[in-house]
Design a protein around this nucleic acid. Structure first.
Lengths: 238, 238
DNA sequence: ATCGATTTGATAATCGATTATTTGTGTTAT
DNA sequence: ATAACACAAATAATCGATTATCAAATCGAT
């Protein structure tokens, strides 16, 4: 793909002249989250350095950051590797989300202002209008939908106004998406769109109880899908 | 079996051969948490490298990790620095803990087994028997007590059996301790020991409601002390 | 032939030096 | 006197090469 090798282009606006390690880090992060590497695959600094046209040091720095975010494992003296999520690991992540996110959602609904309401509406609109799949882009959810999905769930919680809690959400969402990506899961038959609409409605109606309950069910069902893979054990959601 | 012929370069203590970056990271982490650096102080890679007798690369790697854990800030092209916590930042951390920890404590009390009960007893015993202050060690809580305190609170939650939730606790505890260290707070007049005993009793009695309530109050009061204290000694940092 | 010790190839970890950026200082023109 | 510019010192970021370590392949003895 296109790699911005431009050295100190101080003219253009967007591409920016950030630190090299930042670019490499972002690239690595996106690649892992996109599923470009198989679970358990080794992330060899030398290959990455050559491939990105940078030195070992910057690759190593990026890798350390990636490990810090849980997007890679570090085997002592054996280099870095894409984490291989076990079924148990996925369950733990899902349980953590079920434990924390409903509580934060309650706080968000209590504290959120009008601007938050508007952003929730906007995020849901974008999510609902984004196609979940695009044929050209592979078998999994489209990148655009995955991002809209993340933004919607995050926006729902942003009313809490607490950066620490939102950062916790970010970490868990990242881990959750990575595990989902590796679960080899396909689009479920369940009505995700309906659940999202319910969430939006309850949030805007300031109905914290309903919203928290819907979110908990939403997360429970998402987890059930992935672990009980071949299960046609359908969801009770009308 | 191969005997330990590998005599590390100059390491005196037994455990021996870790990665250099790991040692430097641990040292840096402890130093920051101990308050060896003033809030906002610059962490100069060159100085640290010389001081630790290692190369810039390992220091840089350690610094990146430290930044990832929130124990340092990274100013682009301006190096690393100890974070300067604002009053607002501290409030946010405290609120996040009040939001999450009681919920996890409930889960812990529901799921914890007998081994967990034993560990809670042990942790509380150690905490109660450790002096909060030692004259020689400065004006703040003793290192031993701080560690016992952390272990007690963590053990209380460990019954939940979810590493993801415990990792969340670890991050928040670290941030909380760092902020507390920088708040310039002294020993409060409140009965912290009594609260801890209440927590232990409620947990072992499997009284989730009481335990969660006591924990929430404990965290609220801890936060109130620090922010209240700062009214007398003002902090100008925005 | 199998088990164990040893060599070997690959690569992770580290280092010393180079380049690029920022900050502070001094100079000059308005 | 002030502000803008240019220069200089400090240091952050990066690079190329070296050393240490591990895993697989090889060899030898029972």
């Amino acid at each position: 793909m296109m790699s911005d090798m431009t050295q100190t282009t101080h003219s253009s606006t967007s591409p920016g002249k950030q630190m090299l390690s930042e670019q490499v880090y972002a690239h690595l992060r996106d690649a892992i989250m996109h599923g470009d590497y198989a679970p358990g695959a080794a992330l060899k600094p030398q290959d990455l350095a050559k491939q990105q046209g940078v030195s070992l040091a910057v690759v190593r720095e990026a890798l350390v950051r990636v490990v810090g975010e849980g997007l890679a494992d570090r085997l002592p003296n054996r280099g870095f590797a894409v984490p291989a999520f076990s079924d148990r690991r996925w369950q733990e992540i899902a349980e953590a989300r079920r434990t924390i996110e409903p509580v934060v959602l309650r706080m968000s609904i209590e504290h959120g202002d009008v601007d938050w309401e508007a952003r929730v509406r906007a995020a849901h609109h974008r999510l609902a209008r984004t196609p979940t799949h695009v044929p050209q882009e592979g078998e999994y959810y489209s990148d655009a939908w995955a991002e809209a999905h993340r933004v919607f769930h995050r926006t729902l919680l942003e009313g809490c106004g607490n950066p620490v809690l939102l950062e916790t959400f970010d970490r868990m969402w990242t881990a959750s998406e990575l595990a989902r990506r590796f679960s080899g899961h396909r689009a479920p038959g369940r009505d995700g769109a309906g659940e999202h609409r319910q969430l939006e409605e309850a949030a805007l109606a300031r109905d914290a109880d309903t919203a928290a309950e819907v979110l908990a069910r939403h997360l429970t069902q998402t987890a059930a899908e992935l672990t009980g893979e071949q299960c046609s054990r359908l969801v009770d959601q009308p």
